[in-house]
Amino acid sequence: MSNSEEKIVDHGSDQLCLAEEPITNSIGQHAKPWKLLIVDDEEVVHSVTHLALDGFEIDGQGLEFISAYSGAEARTILRGHKDIAVILLDVVMETDRAGLDLVHFIRRELKNKLVRIILRTGQPGQSPEQEVITQYDINDYKEKTELTRQKLFSAVYTSLRSYADLYALEQNRKGLMKVISASATIFDERDISQFSQGVLEQLTSLLYLDNDAVLINTSGLLAHPEMENLHILAGTGKFKDCYGDVDISIFCSEVVERIRYVLKNKKSSYGENYWLSYYVTKSGLEQLLYLSAKDTFSVPDIEMIELFVKNVAIAHETIALLESCQK
């Protein structure tokens, strides 16, 4: 596609123009690794697990190995790492039931329902599989003698897929709660920010995107491409604490150039690992949504993103109209 070409997507009465990417070198996104906690009192088990899962990767994300050699040490680690995805857990450590007690701690005290727990035991007679599965909230049960490299790989792979789905659902639930809460008062309290934040969190979780996303109101402060300020309505990831009028330098130079390009050409822009959506209402209110992702966006993803920006802009415009009528 040449610099002068455009890709047009027809959405009923709206026409989406996708501008050609102005940056020749796209920014590579370094995906955060999945956190895997190994809890076992035998050093050799940790070493063998590292070796067996060497080079493991899902969707560009590798593994970060964290080791604990007792149930007590694992408790300390779990309190400090809320985002551990999978635990490979031994049963017999400092006590005969140290692993099972840790499961109780994770599920009951920490109330962590997301982390996937794979129980590994070298003494299955002490903790029969049927008893453990029915009485404890674990996700898999393996005897160390049967756990080949391939079986371990498969167990961790399926557990991580399950964790990713559950995490997305949880983030979607939290976003939906914010939307429900904000929707009841959005026009009474003129609070577009909470509404935008909730829907943005839903969007990023539904599309399995990286957490970094930001919704920008470009009317006024950023009406001209050379201005240095912008107004953020909502953000996630590294932009979560950004709100209101901020300096454009919070973005790296490549993203700043992309924003200026979109504002100048009044068209959405995209690359291999990002989408910058542009929408303008009939009254001239402009909004941008910047999203980062590990992979390219599909057509359904694009349609959902564009619909999000459009609806938030219209809601924002409606609030502004109500305020002007009451003056």
Rank of each mutant, 00 (worst) to 15 (best):
K174P: 07
S277T: 08
L291C: 14
F153G: 03
A72I: 14
S193N: 13
G99I: 01
K174I: 11
K310A: 12
Y243A: 09
K310R: 15
Q194W: 04
G237L: 12
I250N: 05
R260F: 13
T281H: 00
E143K: 03
L221S: 07
V156G: 06
I216M: 12
E5T: 11
R161K: 13
V280W: 04
E189M: 07
I250W: 11
E20S: 09
Y167M: 06
L100E: 11
G80N: 14
D188V: 03
D301Y: 11
L221Y: 14
Y279D: 06
N311D: 13
I302W: 10
T24M: 05
N3D: 09
E323P: 02
A234G: 10
K113N: 15
I133S: 06
D10F: 10
I180H: 08
H81S: 10
I319F: 05
R75V: 05
F297Y: 15
I232N: 04
L102I: 02
A52F: 12
S292R: 13
H11L: 11
V255F: 07
F251R: 08
Y243G: 09
Y167H: 05
L288W: 11
L307V: 06
K266P: 10
I38K: 03
G62A: 00
K113L: 05
R75P: 01
A293Q: 08
S162C: 05
P128M: 06
F251S: 13
E201N: 11
H46C: 01
I250C: 05
I186P: 13
S298M: 05
D96T: 03
S324L: 07
N217V: 00
L230W: 15
R173S: 15
F308Y: 15
K266D: 14
S219V: 00
S196P: 08
E146S: 13
S205V: 08
E228R: 08
S127L: 06
L160M: 06
S283M: 01
F308A: 06
D137I: 02
D96I: 04
A184E: 12
Q171H: 15
P300S: 10
E6A: 02
T296F: 10
C325D: 14
L78V: 10
V246M: 12
R116Q: 14
